[in-house]
Design a protein around this nucleic acid. Structure first.
Length: 424
RNA sequence: GCCGGGAUCGGCUAGUGGUUAGGCUGGCGGCCUGUGGAGCCGCCGAGGUGGGUUCGAAUCCCACUCCCGGCCCCA
């Protein structure tokens, strides 16, 4: 038995059909918002991801030396590659630069439900669009895409900026802040408190506890609660940030299938986020099917000009798992020459139909009886029988396998019969 | 990295130390000349890998590999 590497998958039909369906919908939607596709390398230098992707990701990277001894990594995500590309080639492009990608990514973790070592991300990066326009655009695209895919979602929104500005106020160093975010994200209150008490008075810890419990869908009342907490502890200058979040959620015109969950106790593993962060959840999968956020300092940290940026990605694997319907494909027609001497005639018919955009399959070997059985078995909805009448008059017998009816018609009219008879 | 449960024809499975490893489904061919879902017949096709115990292993033991699920984290 030829074995497969752990955590990677062979994706066969019909799974692969759903997979590419999700990708095609993604391409279509983000293109409509002005995004253009970019292709980035699977391999990058390890150091590209090392610094700003965060400890969790760098622990789980595929890292190795090439024959020259260079330390390389298989990409665990693509945002750093795009930041690199922006700095190298696109610095003087008019802003914003809107890019999207569909890429396989790799993380060395223990495989489990909806989590693989090789997985596909479809994402966008919007470089050069400031708050709140990038947020509005990005969240609108997420909503539009999920609505198009008919997946009801809740979008969990958090904000790194509030926490960062409070932590900065208390002069907590960057590395410690990162640890705090990790603890916050895990809901590990003990670690969080232990880490933070070295820098802040007990009173502030109390405020943190209250703040991180703010969670729910009634954004306005939650924001009011946040403002109350902040002013109680003398952080009134940060209330403007709460106003921003409230305005953002009010300006978003999401479809009926999407809802917002505000969660102040939410952080993300990626170390480069600076502002709004979000994760997308579907009720039929208990893991995030997408996520993103604002990263206004990444490009500068990488040596580029200070440039605001925001992006998101969906997990193609997970989104196609969340699709609870079968993807329709174009109805196929099996072309059956009744005798071997009609094969070339059938081939002609196939070319004519292909030029009309129809999907056909040519039967070379089976006799008519076998071919009909085969069509049944494969759920091919139509069979076109090609015999003498095709050669003499250009007519075929088209059989509707479901209705068990058949008509002798000219090839030109097949489209009328087949139209609207999609199969799954 | 840790913790559970698994692995027999392509798919589903039977088999608890001696079987030509059985069945169902499938694929291919036939009964059957240009008309399908039935039936009958034939053929194809298997114990993850490597060790060990034994006269003898799918079966017992060990290790590894991979799968499924959980912790953790995320897409």
């Amino acid at each position: 038995m030829l074995r497969k590497v752990k955590g990677v998958r062979d994706i066969l039909p019909p799974e692969s059909i759903k997979f590419t369906y999700v990708i095609e919908k993604f391409r279509k939607i983000v293109s409509r918002f002005g995004y253009e596709e970019i292709i980035t390398p699977t391999l990058e230098y390890f150091e590209l991801f090392e610094k700003k992707s965060g400890v969790e990701i760098s622990k789980t990277m595929y890292v190795f030396k090439d024959k020259k001894g260079l330390i390389l990594a298989l990409r665990p995500e693509v945002t750093p590659s795009i930041a690199r590309i922006y700095i190298n080639y696109l610095k003087s492009s008019p802003l914003p630069v809107r890019l999207f990608y569909v890429a396989n990514c790799f993380r060395y973790e223990e495989p489990q439900r909806a989590r693989y070592r090789e997985f596909w991300q479809a994402g966008v990066e919007c470089i050069g669009l400031k708050e709140p326009y990038g947020e509005l655009e990005t969240l609108t695209m997420v909503d539009t895409l999920m609505n198009e895919l008919k997946i009801p979602v809740s979008i969990r929104i958090g904000d790194m900026a509030i926490w960062r500005s409070i932590f900065d106020y208390y002069l907590i160093p960057d590395e410690k802040q990162q640890l705090l975010f990790t603890a916050l994200d895990k809901g590990d209150n003990e670690t969080f408190t232990n880490l933070v008490q070295e820098y802040v008075p007990p009173k502030a810890i109390n405020m943190f506890q209250r703040l991180m419990q703010i969670k729910g869908s009634n954004v306005s009342s939650l924001c009011a609660e946040c403002r109350r907490i902040l002013s109680d502890y003398g952080f009134s200058e940060i209330e403007g940030r709460i106003d921003f979040i409230e305005e953002l959620s009010l300006s978003l015109k999401l479809s009926r299938n999407s809802r917002i969950i505000l969660d102040m106790g939410f952080a993300r593993g990626l170390a480069y986020y600076t502002g709004i962060i979000f994760e997308v959840y579907s009720s039929n999968l208990d893991v995030a099917i997408g996520g993103g956020g604002r990263y206004d300092s990444l490009i500068e940290v990488f040596g580029g000009p200070p440039t605001p940026a925001i992006g998101f990605a969906i997990g193609v694997d997970r989104v196609s798992m969340a699709l609870n319907y079968d993807v329709k494909t174009s109805p196929r027609i099996l072309l059956v020459p009744v005798k071997p001497e009609y094969i070339s005639a059938a081939l002609n018919a196939q070319v004519i139909l292909a030029r009309k955009g129809m999907c056909t399959e040519l039967e070379y070997k089976r006799d008519l009886r076998k071919a009909l059985k085969y069509a049944n078995n494969r759920d091919i909805p139509f069979v076109a029988i090609i015999g003498s009448e095709f050669v003499s008059e250009g007519k075929v017998t088209i059989k509707d396998m479901m209705r068990r009816t058949q008509h002798v018609i000219s090839l030109e009219k097949i489209a009328d019969i087949v139209a609207g008879q999609g199969s799954s």
